[in-house]
Write a protein that binds this DNA or RNA. Structure first.
Length: 425
RNA sequence: GGAAGAGUGGCAGAGUGGUUGAAUGCGGCGGUCUCGAAAACCGUUAUCCCGAAUUUCGGGAUCGGGGGUUCGAAUCCCUCCUCUUCCGCCA
C-alpha cells in the first residue's frame, strides 16, 4: 500500500509511476479524500477535546452540588455531532483505504519503463558446458516422456481432481520429492536461510497482507465454509509470519525458505499453454522470503536471484534472467527478475522463478516493522520473495534436457543421492 | 461439537462507570555512587492520527476486534475472534 503522505509530497512522481505500471491514476482523488478526511478529524477532535474537558469537570460540579442537567443536554448534542462527524470520517477513510488497497506499488527507478512483457530485458544467460540449442535427435516433450516412462499421469490426475492437477507416479514422484529436498538443503546449507513449513490454508487477513486480495481474488481458491484460502504461494503464510510485529534492527535480514504446494485457479487462462505442467492448479514450490532493512533491500534482491541461480547451475539446467519492465511487474512488486529455464521440446524459455522486492508495500499492509537502533523509532521493513524454485516448470526443463536419444532420463548428479537411482527408463 | 473461565503497556499483574495512557513489580534506557562493576537510590520508559512551530509543543484515538448503553466506558450490554480447563470425537 502506498503512503498517503508520500503521495501528497510527490504527486507528479506517483502519477508517472502509476502510468508506467498501466494503473489508474488515483492521485487527485486520493488527495481530495485525504483533505476531506483531515478536515473532519480537525472538527471531531475539537469537539472531543471539549467533551473531555467537560467530563472531567462534572465530578467537581457534582461534588459542589451544582445542577448538571443543562450541561448534560449540551453534551448530548456534542456527542451526537461527534458521532455524525465520525460516521462521515469512517466512510471517507474506507473509501480512501479501498482506493489505496487497489493501487499497485510503484516501480523502482532501475526498472525499465515498458508497456508489456515484450519490453522486458534479458540480463544474463547461463548455459551448461557443451549445451546446444540444436538437438542431435528428435526430443520428446515432458508429457510424452512422462507417459512413456510412467512417471507422470495427467489423465488420471484429471480423473481424480480435474485438469491441472498433476499425478506423479513411481520414479516421477521420487524425483519430485528429491528436487524439493535438494533445493531446501541447498538453501539451508549454502545460503543461510532457515526452514519453514507453513500452513497451506490461510485467512483473509494474510491474503490482504501480501496483496493477493483484493486485486487477484479471482485467481484464488476459497473454502467458503471456513473463510480460508488455499495458498497460491508460500510467500503468503511465510511473509505473514511477522504480520503486526516489531522486529529488531539487528536481526535483519531474516531469511526463510519453505516448501509448500501452491494452488491457483488460473481463471480465464485456458489455452494452448494449459497442457501438461505448463499451467496447473496445483504445483510444488520452494520459496525464499526475506525481511530486509530498507537500506539494503536491493542488494538482498540481487543475492536472492543468485541463490536461485545456484540451484540451476548445480543441476546443469540452462536458464536466463529477465528484468521485468514496469508494465509487466506484478501488483505489489517494485522490482522483479524472472528466471526462465530452457525447454528443448517447446523450443522456448519457461518461467521457473520470480524474485521480487516489494519494498515496504507489503510491510505497510501487513504492518511489519523494525525498531531502529539509533533513534528508537519504528519503520517498515522491506519484504522480498523468490521462488527457489517452482518444481513444475523445472521438471519440464529437467526431463527434456536430461533425456537420452533412447527416451530415458539421466538424473542430474546432485539429485542422485536424493533419488537413490541414476536413470529413469 | 458441548460446558466453564479468561483476554489490560516489552513481560507479569492491579483496576468493575468520572483528571486511568492506565497502580505495582520485573525488564529496558539515563544518572548518582565506584578505579571499574554489582547493589542501592533518583529519573525515564507505548503506538497511531491531526494541528502549529527550524531540537519541541498542543489536541485526539487506542485496555483482543466490531457494535451498543451513557453527559462520560478498560469498567455495563450484544456479537465475533483467540486462549485455557473439562467432556466428546479424531489423524
Amino acid at each position: 500500500m502506498l503512503d498517503v503522505k508520500f503521495i501528497k509530497e510527490n504527486p507528479d512522481l506517483v502519477k508517472q509511476g502509476l502510468l508506467n505500471k498501466n494503473a489508474a491514476n488515483v492521485v487527485d482523488e486520493v488527495l481530495k479524500l485525504d483533505e476531506e478526511r483531515r478536515a473532519l478529524i480537525l472538527k471531531s477532535d475539537e469537539l472531543k477535546a471539549k467533551r473531555n474537558q467537560v467530563s472531567s469537570d462534572i465530578p467537581k460540579m457534582k461534588k459542589a452540588g451544582q445542577d448538571t442537567t443543562v450541561v448534560f443536554a449540551e453534551m448530548k448534542r456534542v456527542g451526537d455531532e461527534i458521532a455524525l462527524l465520525d460516521n462521515n470520517l469512517r466512510k471517507i477513510e474506507e473509501e480512501l483505504e479501498e482506493m489505496l488497497r487497489n493501487t499497485p506499488n510503484l516501480a523502482h527507478s532501475t526498472v525499465p519503463v515498458g508497456k508489456s512483457a515484450d519490453e522486458n530485458v534479458e540480463v544474463r544467460q547461463w548455459l551448461p558446458d557443451g549445451f546446444s540449442f540444436k538437438n542431435d535427435f528428435e526430443v520428446l516433450d515432458h508429457i510424452e516422456l512422462g507417459k512413456k516412462l510412467q512417471i507422470l499421469d495427467f489423465e488420471r490426475g484429471t480423473k481424480i481432481s480435474g485438469s491441472g492437477f498433476p499425478l506423479y507416479t513411481g520414479k516421477g514422484a521420487t524425483l519430485e520429492r528429491a528436487l524439493i529436498n535438494f533445493m531446501l538443503d541447498f538453501h539451508l546449507n549454502h545460503h543461510g536461510y532457515s526452514e519453514i513449513l507453513p500452513p497451506v490454508l490461510v485467512n483473509k487477513e494474510s491474503m490482504k497482507g501480501t496483496g493477493q486480495i483484493p486485486k487477484m481474488e479471482e485467481d484464488m481458491y476459497l473454502i467458503e465454509k471456513d473463510g480460508l484460502y488455499p495458498i497460491p504461494t508460500s510467500e503468503v503464510p511465510i511473509t505473514n509470519i511477522h504480520r503486526d510485529e516489531v522486529l529488531l534492527e539487528k536481526e535483519l535480514p531474516i531469511k526463510y525458505v519453505g516448501y509448500s504446494p501452491c494452488f491457483r485457479r488460473e481463471a480465464g487462462s485456458y489455452g494452448k499453454e494449459s497442457k501438461g505442467f505448463l499451467r496447473v492448479h496445483q504445483f510444488n514450490k520452494v520459496e525464499m522470503v526475506k525481511f530486509s532493512h530498507p537500506k539494503n533491500s536491493y542488494d538482498e534482491l540481487e543475492s536472492m536471484v543468485v541463490d536461485a541461480e545456484d540451484i540451476l547451475k548445480a543441476m546443469g539446467i540452462p536458464y536466463r534472467i529477465i528484468l521485468l519492465c514496469t508494465g509487466d511487474l506484478s501488483f505489489s512488486a517494485a522490482k522483479c527478475y524472472d528466471i526462465e529455464t530452457w525447454s528443448p521440446a517447446e523450443n522456448k524459455w519457461l518461467e521457473a522463478s520470480s524474485c521480487s522486492n516489494f519494498e515496504n508495500f507489503q510491510a505497510r499492509r501487513a504492518n511489519i516493522r523494525y525498531r531502529r537502533e539509533d533513534d528508537k523509532k519504528l519503520d517498515f521493513v522491506h519484504t522480498l520473495n523468490g521462488s527457489g524454485l517452482a518444481t513444475s516448470r523445472l521438471m519440464v526443463s529437467l526431463l527434456e534436457n536430461y533425456q537420452t536419444p533412447e527416451g530415458k532420463i539421466v538424473v542430474p548428479k546432485v539429485l542422485q543421492k536424493y533419488t537413490g537411482f541414476e536413470i529413469i527408463g
